[in-house]
């Protein structure tokens, strides 16, 4: 009896999240030119990377450097770019909602604020991830051959959900600073630069010097880009379970931070006007 009640509550909640996700996606489809622009830019950048890494490998397809062939490097970059470009800019969204008071129309609803944004974010990020993955694959497939990664694909998809959740929480922690400070762009900028370097977006951590690898392993950024992309191209080089556990750990830590910050922040919210 109680079980069934619980179940129906859960189904209502998931339908709620589903409805938020659906409408976010539908609204996304209105920005077609935006997608085309981003996609062509991705094509260009990946083409440049193909050229750069081909030069670095001196065109040798069989050479293995720190566990990566040229083909693996290029596909690695396709995966990190797809995740990076999949993540929408939460900071500007939240900052605008707080600044112009649009947060009011979120808070009059019987739904958690962070939860609402997570549902919307997930829909957008997953959708964009797959589009960019498809676009990036065109380049990689053409220049370095098909992605025959077998279990790697399973590894990629299973770690990507955790990865974009970590990206959400990291961005949310920065975005929620909008309750206290007027400008969060500066901090968002720093965050992006950290993903870009110590997250392994342009360079797998394995190719970095020892000392930097050791630092990276203590930071959440590797779990966001390096884990899924490395697992995809080099399945089995690290335990999937262990990586998932590290992701879960970071998600727990960051989720606690996010909730605490939200509670503290919303209590001191003041909306302009009237």
């Amino acid at each position: 009896m109680i079980d069934r009640k619980m179940q129906s509550v859960l189904s209502l909640k998931s339908k709620k999240a589903g409805a938020v996700a659906t409408i976010t996606l539908r609204q996304q489809l209105a920005y077609k030119t935006d997608f085309i622009m981003r996609s062509t830019f991705l094509l260009l950048i990946l083409f440049v990377f193909v050229q750069l890494w081909s030069s670095a490998y001196e065109g040798d397809r069989t050479r293995i450097i720190d566990g990566y062939t040229l083909k693996q490097i290029i596909w690695y970059l396709v995966f990190t770019e797809a995740i990076t470009m999949g993540v929408p800019s939460l900071c500007s969204l939240i900052e605008n909602e707080v600044k112009n008071g649009d947060i009011a129309i979120r808070l009059i609803r019987p739904i958690s604020y962070v939860g609402y944004h997570y549902a919307a974010y997930l829909a957008e990020a997953v959708f964009r991830f797959f589009i960019h993955l498809a676009v990036g694959s065109i380049i990689a497939w053409t220049f370095v051959g098909p992605p025959s990664f077998g279990w790697g694909w399973a590894g990629l998809f299973s770690l990507t959900l955790g990865a974009i959740s970590i990206a959400f929480l990291l961005n949310m922690v920065v975005a929620l600073c909008a309750f206290w400070v007027e400008e969060t762009r500066g901090m968002e900028f720093v965050l992006h630069k950290l993903q870009f370097t110590v997250g392994g977006m342009l360079l797998p951590l394995d190719l970095m010097p020892e000392w930097l690898q050791r630092i990276c392993s203590w930071l959440p950024f590797q779990a966001m880009l390096y884990f899924p992309a490395r697992t995809a191209v080099n399945y089995g080089s690290a335990s999937l379970l262990q990586q998932a556990a590290i992701q879960a750990g970071w998600i727990a830590v960051l989720a606690v931070c996010t909730v605490m910050m939200y509670r503290k922040g919303v209590a001191k919210l003041h909306v302009n006007g009237g």
């Binding site: 670095a56 450097i65 720190d66 630069k193 342009l202 190719l207 970095m208």
Partner: peptide
Amino acid sequence: MMFINNFMWLFFWSLFFHRFPVV
């Protein structure tokens, strides 16, 4: 910020050339 942004790119390149000294 722009200064730092450019600097981060140099950081990436220093990592890259650390692995491949001449390309």
